[in-house]
Design a protein around this nucleic acid. Sequence first.
DNA 1: GTGGTCTAGACCACG
DNA 2: GTGGTCTAGACCACC
Lengths: 128, 128, 128, 128
Amino acid sequence: MIILDYKDRRPIYEQVTEKLQELILCGILEEDSQLPSVRSLATQLSINPNTIQRAYAELERKGFIYSVKGKGSFVADASSIKALKTGQLRRDLNEWMRQARNAGITEDKIHRWIAEDWTKIMPEGGEL
Amino acid sequence: MIILDYKDRRPIYEQVTEKLQELILCGILEEDSQLPSVRSLATQLSINPNTIQRAYAELERKGFIYSVKGKGSFVADASSIKALKTGQLRRDLNEWMRQARNAGITEDKIHRWIAEDWTKIMPEGGEL
Amino acid sequence: MIILDYKDRRPIYEQVTEKLQELILCGILEEDSQLPSVRSLATQLSINPNTIQRAYAELERKGFIYSVKGKGSFVADASSIKALKTGQLRRDLNEWMRQARNAGITEDKIHRWIAEDWTKIMPEGGEL
Amino acid sequence: MIILDYKDRRPIYEQVTEKLQELILCGILEEDSQLPSVRSLATQLSINPNTIQRAYAELERKGFIYSVKGKGSFVADASSIKALKTGQLRRDLNEWMRQARNAGITEDKIHRWIAEDWTKIMPEGGEL
DNA sequence: GTGGTCTAGACCACG
DNA sequence: GTGGTCTAGACCACC
């Protein structure tokens, strides 16, 4: 379900965090469904359980999952997850717009860029 | 002219690189004008000259400035700088769109977000 | 595996970069195989780890190797390495041809030179 | 007759050396004709006389010019100049071939590259 | 253990 | 004075 890229310069735990986040957002991991245990996912990916532990902690901090001691980790409720991600995306967009404005890009140009490139973006056909 | 954020996890030289890049793009540092010397900027920011040296080397590699041994460092040709930045911004936007699409954001919604927030973005009133 | 020339006016890190690049191109260092660690190569060559670090950073920027924090540095994908080097060689040849043309060398003469000298070039029998 | 490029990373004296060498090779500066005096060329280029002095010394060392105390500097005899440059070019080509061979380039490919690109190389229409 | 960043202080080439 | 290179030694994040 997850493929690590060791050539990626980002830390492993960050890759795991991101991939799980995408799986949750795509709806592949449904609301309240149980995530694989820290140990099983670690052995499956041939990495240290500490790394998975850190990824899960990060996801819980962000509000995407919740953990129950002795039971496991579970996907948080869908609506709040969507709100979280939408808020983050909009903040990223605003930061990007600030830079674009400083570089002299007009609003019209941005709309045109989006119209041109939106369809070119593939709907994530690759593995996660 | 530059304020460092030591709480920021990114390396100092990267912060310096980014801030100088913004100053160049904003036109505050004009074409062929001389940048502060490695040593003077280092003492001004209370950091090691090597760190500034690395930031300048990075900016030169990217094509934003050029250095002349024994003379100093200077802002590169304005038009090529603009081309560089525009290309970078568009690539960033496409990466953002990929994420937005995965999160179920529609193209219409993005256009609406931009229309709403564009005017709210201040023309770089903050400190750099 | 690497011998430094302190009489050479070029910086040490550049010599190291070039020698490693040759070792990679010759296939002595194979795809995805691990390079010596920054510290070990530094002690082996009796130079400072920072210098090796800079050479590795340069090689990574050029696309010949990739680094993984906490793991090590590794030789990049062989096919893309070959493409990189071929492009560089052709650009070098064109620059050389410009000079030759200015000096009154004809195209025929160049073809003859190559035919004469190609077989004399040993397949890298020397040390690197 | 000479235009300096301050964006060029190479030292000024090296640029002057190279440009004069090209002017000599092109035949613009003829055998035994007098070069401009160190001081006059320095003021013409708005640089330090020491820099010109160093360029002339380099050219004399290489055998392209000869100096007569109290008289000035003069272009060496044409045939030996041509031999000098031809020898240098051939050595450069052999070094390039060594690299190409290590990278797996065949002799046929080189001949093809030259045939393709030779006519594209402009006969140095620019300023020197 | 690994790569990566930073500091302190030195030396060099250049103009 | 400038940019650029190198050393010595330290600390950090990651695995």
